[in-house]
C-alpha cells in the first residue's frame, strides 16, 4: 500500500483542525482542534520518515508529543482560570479587548 494515502489523511485532518479552530466557539474545542493539527503534522512526519527511510521523522514525532503535552498544561490552566472568573469558556464572551 502506498504511503501517499497517509499524507492525504494527514492533510485532511489538518484541514479539519484548522477549520474547527476558525468556526468553533468553545475554547476547549478550539484547543482540541489545535491538537488535531499537531497530530496531523505528526502523522506527516512519520509517513515521510517511512518514505525517506530515515528515523528522524519518528524521533521528531516524540518531540512534538512532549511539546503538545506541555501546551495542554498551559492551555487548560488558562482556560480554567478564565472559566472560573466568567462561568463560560466561549471565545465569544471574552470580548473586553477590542478596537
Amino acid at each position: 500500500m502506498t504511503p501517499d494515502y497517509y499524507l492525504i489523511l494527514a492533510a485532511v485532518l489538518f484541514t479539519i483542525g484548522a477549520v474547527g479552530v476558525l468556526v468553533r466557539r468553545n475554547a476547549i474545542v478550539v484547543f482540541m482542534c489545535v491538537e488535531l493539527m499537531l497530530n496531523a503534522a505528526n502523522l506527516t512526519l512519520v509517513t515521510f520518515a517511512r518514505i525517506n527511510g530515515s528515523l528522524d521523522g519518528q524521533i521528531m514525532a516524540f518531540f512534538v508529543m512532549v511539546v503538545a503535552a506541555a501546551e495542554v498544561v498551559i492551555g487548560l490552566a488558562i482556560i480554567m482560570s478564565i472559566f472560573r472568573s466568567r462561568r463560560s469558556a466561549s471565545v465569544d464572551d471574552a470580548n473586553l479587548l477590542k478596537y
Binding site: V21, A27, E71, I82, A94, N95
Partner: peptide, 14 residues
C-alpha cells in the same frame, strides 16, 4: 489580562 492570555494562547498554538 486573562482574556489576553486566552487570545494569545489560542492564536499562538494555532
Amino acid at each position: 489580562s486573562q482574556e489576553a492570555a486566552l487570545k494569545y494562547f489560542l492564536l499562538g498554538a494555532f
